[in-house]
């Protein structure tokens, strides 16, 4: 027996039970009724047949319900399996998202490193050059006074008094104003670059040869350090640290 579409088996069973109740009520009424009100034999037998049919229908619908219970069990199993797969998929998606974030960050950093490597390869600077210039800077007390400096000590950061007197500013008082004005522009425009290299315009990493030349010009006026024994060498080392600290403070 097939269940009509849209009506659940539960509703069907309940309606059959209701039908059985109604039929039995009808049957009892006709049994109790007086002879003149009683239904004919054939009607009674029809009611009985109907009751029997409903009884069969109830049993077959119960069999159907039993089958549906088995299907329901399968559905529960499938549902739990689907839920488990859902959990797995969500967990995997979470892991993949995390991996994606980590990889994209790593990729970005690797690209930055590659750029830096490429830049370093195109603008190579010899380490010996760097060390030599660093030594020149620190050994001549050009940036900071030596740690053991005391009044009267000729070692001090440039420019010293003698060098200031030798410079343009010291001689400016001796010159007439017109000469000063005439002499200033050419110095600023022509010789400025050579005498006082422009730090802001020249990139420090331009090329190795450029750098060598620019650094050479920068320190052209700085005398080569004279080796004065171990004591002086110690001073150089101290000055190296001092120079780094002072340059960092200058840059601030």
């Amino acid at each position: 027996m097939t269940t009509p579409r849209g009506i659940s088996t539960k509703e069907k069973l309940l309606s059959i039970v209701d039908d059985v109740e109604t039929i039995v009520k009808e049957l009892l009424e006709t049994t109790i009724a007086q002879k003149q009100d009683k239904l004919s034999e054939s009607d009674q037998s029809q009611i009985m047949q109907l009751l029997l049919r409903k009884n069969d229908e109830l049993k077959s619908t119960l069999n159907l319900a039993s089958e549906q219970q088995e299907i329901d069990q399968k559905m529960l199993q499938l549902g739990s399996e689907v839920y488990k797969h859902d959990q797995d998929i969500q967990m995997l998606q979470k892991h993949l998202k995390e991996a994606d974030t980590l990889l994209s960050t790593a990729l970005f950093q690797a690209k930055q490193k590659l750029d830096q490597i490429q830049k370093a390869q195109t603008h190579q600077v010899g380490s010996e050059d760097l060390i030599r210039f660093a030594h020149r800077i620190s050994s001549t007390n050009a940036v900071a006074a030596p740690a053991t400096w005391a009044p009267g000590d000729p070692r001090r950061p440039y420019p010293t008094d003698i060098e200031m007197r030798m410079g343009f500013l010291a001689r400016i008082n001796d010159m007439p104003i017109s000469q000063v004005l005439d002499s200033m522009p050419p110095i600023m425009s022509r010789g400025g670059d050579q005498l006082y290299p422009n730090f802001t315009q020249q990139p420090w990493y331009s090329t190795s040869s450029e750098m060598s030349s620019s650094v050479s010009s920068l320190f052209a006026n700085i005398p080569e350090p004279t080796v004065r024994g171990n004591a002086n060498h110690d001073d150089v080392e101290v000055m190296s640290t001092d120079s780094s600290s002072s340059s960092s403070s200058d840059s601030q």
Binding site: T3, R5, L14, I71, D72
Partner: peptide, 22 residues
């Protein structure tokens, strides 16, 4: 009957749902 599990749908609908789950 009201407490019977798995009979809230007709058999056809139930089979459809089972297939959908599969």
């Amino acid at each position: 009957i009201r407490k019977l599990p798995g009979i809230d749908y007709s058999k056809e609908d139930q089979i459809k749902k089972l297939e959908a789950l599969r």
